[in-house]
């Protein structure tokens, strides 16, 4: 089984560009309905299927995502 991962999104930096959504293999991310202080609807985690592959963080133009993966 794939390792479990988790992400932390810096919502104030997110511009809701959706590039991370396209990069995620497990559809963990979606654009939420809330807006941040800049007025952007930011990315949110919608399920717990994250495997910590860091694809979302690598393509994020604004370095918004920090990725964690369990060690085993």
């Amino acid at each position: 089984m794939a390792k479990k991962g988790d992400i932390v999104i810096d919502i104030e930096k997110c511009k809701g560009c959706e590039v991370c959504l396209a990069a995620c293999p497990n559809d963990v991310l979606a654009i939420g309905s809330e807006v941040n202080r800049k007025g952007y609807r930011y990315a949110v985690k919608v399920n717990s299927d994250c495997i910590g592959c860091a694809n979302c963080a690598v393509v994020c133009p604004d370095a918004v995502i920090t990725v964690y993966r369990e060690k085993k």
Partner: peptide, 29 residues
């Protein structure tokens, strides 16, 4: 899982913490 030993990716230190002025989705960032 959010503990320092599980960290696999974060913003690198040669990038400052400023919010980029680029448009959403711009490749510059």
């Amino acid at each position: 899982l959010i503990t320092p030993e599980n960290l696999v990716y974060k913003k690198t230190k040669s990038m400052t913490d400023r919010i980029l002025h680029y448009c959403p989705g711009c490749g510059h960032g």
